[in-house]
């Protein structure tokens, strides 16, 4: 089962490499990973998605907690949460396809953020599934380049990850 795990860690050199190294050395898989400092500059917040059954996820969270620089670990998928990812996708848009791409973009509530004669660059925000659905809705041959941010997540309501 896919899980989204949020981690608060000390914003120090080398801290991220310990998290990534842990996944490699324990044979856990990372699908996506995003990290940035929080409003408290001494802390970074990292969101990662991984696959595993309950036993595996329990081990992952325990081993993350064991890292000295990890302050908090939170399995967002244990409860209600919001998940967002941003994608920028460059699509061939010339001749007849130009209008078609624009229509599909509107349906997905994407924004065209860069235009030239041959291409549109579209920005789309949403859960990973929506981003994948958008790519599927396009003609594969039109897609020139895709960049995705990886998943960020936050708990709903009173589910709060802080110090």
């Amino acid at each position: 089962m896919r899980r989204i795990i949020a981690v608060l860690l000390e914003n120090e050199a080398g801290a991220l490499s310990r998290v990534v190294g842990l996944f490699a050395q324990r044979n856990y898989n990372i699908e996506t990973l995003t990290v940035a400092p929080t409003e408290d500059p001494t802390l970074s917040r990292l969101t990662l998605t991984t696959e595993g059954d309950d036993g595996k996820i329990e081990q992952i969270t325990k081993h993350l907690n064991r890292l000295i620089e990890v302050v908090r670990v939170f399995d967002l998928t244990e409860g209600d949460h919001l998940e967002r990812e941003i994608m920028m996708i460059k699509v061939r848009a010339d001749g007849a396809t130009r209008a078609e791409v624009k229509r599909t973009t509107d349906i997905f509530r994407g924004q065209i953020v860069d235009v030239n004669q041959n291409t549109y660059t579209i920005q789309l925000v949403g859960p990973s599934g929506k981003l994948a659905a958008f790519i599927d809705a396009l003609d594969r041959n039109q897609v020139v380049e895709v960049v995705r941010s990886g998943v960020s997540g936050i708990g709903r309501g009173d589910r709060i990850l802080s110090l």
Binding site: G55, E58, Q59, K62, H63, N65, R66
Partner: peptide
């Protein structure tokens, strides 16, 4: 003492 050792 190590939670990660339990149920590993």
């Amino acid at each position: 003492v190590d939670p990660a050792s339990i149920a590993k």
